[in-house]
């Protein structure tokens, strides 16, 4: 069964159509990358899957279950985690507190109003493991605001992974990063277990071709092509409207 099936999805802001009859399937464990020029509707598509944006018509099906129009919190609890294009952390809290909030949602008891959260050893162990996974070992006490840009993006992914999601949505995880940071991010994504499916938006072609199993090209809200990286590179129309534009 596919982890995600998008069927004839449509969305518009007023007269501006951002998603135009998009249908897309992601198999379990697949690394799927969406590319496309600015304004192609990539982030809008992610926002619809995450529940942040409402679709006009069409269906979003998660593991056979229709989740169209569900609230973000509900979709998150069904196993979809995401990062945001712009850093979206709890900037005034520590790295550890950021992760613990995310862990509490899934493994803790957020309605507990009496036990001292800081003394929860189980969540602390979980958080330590997460910090290792996203290369933030030993940084738990730092305030998120004081992390470097690349570290903040790593923390974003740590927060997303906290709930042990089945599907991870990454919105430009390497944007604004230095080459060294980008390489670290590629490692990090490459090390994710294959039980986890990933749908990501990416601009950097080196990242795209080193990570992707399949690539979808969006162009003015429409799907221009879907296929393996090799197919996409060979696709004449893609070269014409998108890859060619870069030169």
């Amino acid at each position: 069964m596919n982890i995600l099936d998008i069927e004839h999805l449509n969305c518009a802001f007023g007269n501006l159509i951002v998603t135009d009859d998009v249908s897309l399937s992601i198999a379990e464990g697949e690394r799927h990358v969406i590319i496309g020029p600015n304004g192609a509707g990539k982030t809008s598509l992610i926002n619809q899957i995450g529940g942040q944006l409402r679709s006009k018509s069409g269906r979003i099906v998660l593991e056979g279950r229709d989740v169209t129009g569900q609230a973000p919190s509900r979709i998150s609890r069904l196993g979809v985690a995401r990062t945001f294009q712009r850093n979206n952390l709890f900037h005034n809290l520590t790295v550890f507190e950021n992760l613990r909030l995310a862990l509490t949602a899934k493994f803790g008891n957020p309605l507990d109003f009496f036990s001292v959260a800081a003394r929860d050893q189980v969540l602390a162990a979980h958080a330590a493991e997460l910090m290792r996974k996203v290369h933030l070992d030993g940084q738990g006490a730092r305030i998120a605001r004081t992390l470097s840009y690349g570290e903040q993006r790593q923390l974003e992914i740590g927060i997303a992974l906290a709930g042990k999601p089945k599907l991870l949505l990454l919105d430009e995880p390497t944007s604004g990063m230095s080459p060294a940071e980008t390489a670290r991010m590629i490692d990090l994504i490459g090390a994710l277990p294959r039980s986890l499916s990933v749908l990501m938006i990416e601009h950097d072609m080196t990242v795209v071709f080193s990570v992707a199993d399949r690539v979808t090209v969006l162009y003015y809200g429409k799907i221009l092509a879907t296929g393996t990286p090799a197919d996409i590179q060979a696709n004449a129309r893609v070269r014409e409207v998108y890859l060619g534009m870069a030169h």
């Binding site: 945001f84 979206n88 709890f90 005034n92 509490t104 008891n109 507990d112």
Partner: peptide, 21 residues
């Protein structure tokens, strides 16, 4: 307690809290 931390999380970044469930 965890509940108090959830309140602070909402104060700090409500959309993020929604996105983590």
């Amino acid at each position: 307690a965890p509940l108090g931390h959830v309140f602070v999380g909402i104060r700090e970044n409500e959309p993020r809290m929604a996105a983590i469930g």
